[in-house]
Design a protein around this nucleic acid. Structure first.
Lengths: 228, 228
DNA sequence: TCGCGTATAATTGGATACAATCTACAATCT
DNA sequence: AGATTGTAGATTGTATCCAATTATACGCGA
């Protein structure tokens, strides 16, 4: 039997698997768009063989973060600005739809747990922990939608979030702050708690599309500069 | 310059890679939901080592067709009926949105090529070639939407299509025919050609949601039976 | 007879070695 | 000089072997 040993808790924000580590390095920008991922180099760096590396790369390919071509290796993908814009518009459509269904079924517990995540989100924002902010941002949105019971929609939204997280982080770095988003989150939660469905959905739409506009503008400017 | 050498054409409907072969066997129902995929068995069957099998399984896991658990192997996933229903509703929302944007930008060439795909679709239907039907059905829809230039939306729709194709094929097998869908496809194309955007979108919505209702009903009945 | 613990078999995860393929550069030909 | 071809290096794809883990079957005792 297990002795009085402390449980092997998985710390949440520290990448454990090879895939998670590489994913985090891509999302954080340490590994940049267009960089080649050499299996041998990664294997040596993590002190494993190339096999686990290949598995990790396959998974990253599935997420759309890298592209693998036979006998040519894996390259970190880059999403054109127009497609980043498109992804935000997809978010607006899907999240508004799922939020509408969620609000009607939300329990007090749902509200409370969403508020708890929001508090963590505020904390990470106050500390300037961009990595946690990106993760918690999606966690908050997701928690709001869970009452809808739309598993497949959430899966797709999670994939979209993974795609855009790189640019959300970059946006935070470039603009140094997103006070507006913080306020909008609180307002959104308040509207949900009041069961003001239409107002909540409208607010969410503005929140997402507003972020889209700001982020896309910053991204265009960033990409226009030669090599800042 | 290139001599009179014939191009090395890849035949489209014949699975070439291991992943494509396994995928086709899952979609066709030869490998069923809940079946375990034993690496050794597959490796021997295809006369390769287990390495390529593992790569293929990882890719299938990425598509959502199989689920891999460490040291426990890979199992063919099964989508609950409610989630199949949800996927069709996602299709309705996303495809209607993208069709609206596409119709305005369609050229005569777009129409003509969509019609060409539709003819192939009719042919495969006449021949009872369910495998080709499933593939061409999506190809037709996709061709209609391409003018919208919504790359990310099409990617997501392609993923959804892959998930539901198993059940679409099953539906065709069970109900022995989809004359209604054939007519609706022609009507949809006609409305697009006439640039009747609202009518086309409304028709598409009915087409998808109608298919949803029929398919879900059949699927529920099929799954309710013990082991037919 | 049922539950439990152990031993054995089956299966997967990873490491190393080798073969196949691609890229880059230099030498050669027109 | 420009284009083409050949060769060397780097990189990926696959096979084989071993370790780690899980599932199964058997035996034991209550």
């Amino acid at each position: 039997m297990a002795p009085v040993k402390s449980r092997p808790i998985k710390r949440q924000s520290v990448p454990e698997t090879l895939r998670e580590s590489l994913q985090e390095r891509i999302l954080s920008g340490e590994i940049r768009e267009g960089d080649w991922l050499i299996q041998d180099a990664i294997a040596e760096e993590y002190d494993v063989s190339r096999m686990p590396v290949r598995e990790a790369l396959r998974q990253l390919e599935a997420c759309g973060l890298v592209l693998m071509r036979t006998h040519r290796g894996a390259i970190v993908t880059s999403i054109p600005t127009e497609q980043v814009e498109e992804l935000f518009e997809l978010r607006a459509m899907l999240e508004c739809d799922v939020l509408r269904q969620a609000v009607a079924r939300m329990t007090e517990r749902d509200i409370a747990e969403a508020r708890a995540v929001l508090n963590q989100l505020d904390a990470s924002y106050a500390q300037g922990d961009i990595g946690s902010w990106g993760r918690l941002n999606w966690a908050f949105h997701r928690r709001l939608y869970e009452a809808a019971g739309r598993v497949q929609t959430l899966n797709i939204l999670q994939g979209i979030n993974l795609q855009i997280e790189r640019y959300v982080r970059l946006h935070l770095l470039l603009t140094q702050g997103a006070d507006e988003a913080v306020r909008e989150h609180h307002e959104l939660l308040k509207l949900c708690a009041a069961r003001a469905t239409d107002a909540a959905v409208a607010h969410l739409r503005e929140h997402i599309l507003g972020t889209r506009t700001n982020l896309v503008t910053a991204l265009r400017a960033h990409r226009a500069t030669p090599a800042a």
